[in-house]
Amino acid sequence: MITVEKMLKIVEWTGLAVITLIFVFPFIWMMITALKSLPETVVFPPEWIPETWMWSNFKVAWSSGPFLRYFFNSLFVAVAILVLQILTMVPAAYAFSRYQFPGRGFLFGLTMAALMIPPQITFLPVFLQMSEWGFINSYIPLILPYAASAFGIFLLRQSFMQVPEELIEAARLDEASEWRIMWRIMVPMARPVLVTFGLFSFIYHWNDYFWPLVMTNSDAFRTLPIGIAMLKDAEGGIAWNIVMAGNMILVIPILIVFFVAQRQIIRAFVYSGVK
């Protein structure tokens, strides 16, 4: 017998399925399109299963530009930024959390101001500066402005403040250097925060389109998102199967990371925003 409760359950499950579909199906559609032949993309109503699976689309997309270079650039820029950010934020967070010094409040205020200034405001003057210094067409404008992270300092400072003072005092009595205390005591205690920050930073810069678009004008330094977006400017109209194949190259690494570390990624983006 179907009770009211059962009915409600069915309605709810249908609702959940619809919601999931709205957010997941576009990705499936990307995949389906990426495996179609060009004529199959221009039929209406659309076909759900490609007649022959055109794995060659990936090859076409990959070879329609210097994609190996783009891929390397994306990886190199994202990793270089993360390494530099960790190197600059650990000492800064240690100083802000554990030292008393004149001007500390002011300098921390400057850090917070940097946190609040988005790249969409600074891109024009930074580009002009960079070209005055002759740095356009190098990795410098892609990496250097992000070599320090105000957000990272903010997160890490909070985590460093929770390390018990006795632990540091004990290390100092053992004549451990401040450098050693920082990297051997503070950093291991803050590992979850550093993982969270690392995921956030890597995903952000891997995905970033705006900054590399503005700061590069040669293929040698363009990143993957720029290359993928340029696929649609092909001569003779947009070949959607090729564009979607390229799109997959950009999306799949992130989706894999998301599947593996979903909880941590959600925490990285959601909870770090709330705190």
Partner: peptide, 21 residues
């Protein structure tokens, strides 16, 4: 020491966030 520790980050912020404004 504390100034040296915050200097790398603050130089970046000053050069690429504050000064451009």
């Amino acid at each position: 020491r504390p100034y040296l520790m915050v200097a790398p980050s603050l130089i970046i912020f000053l050069l690429f966030f504050i000064y451009p404004i």
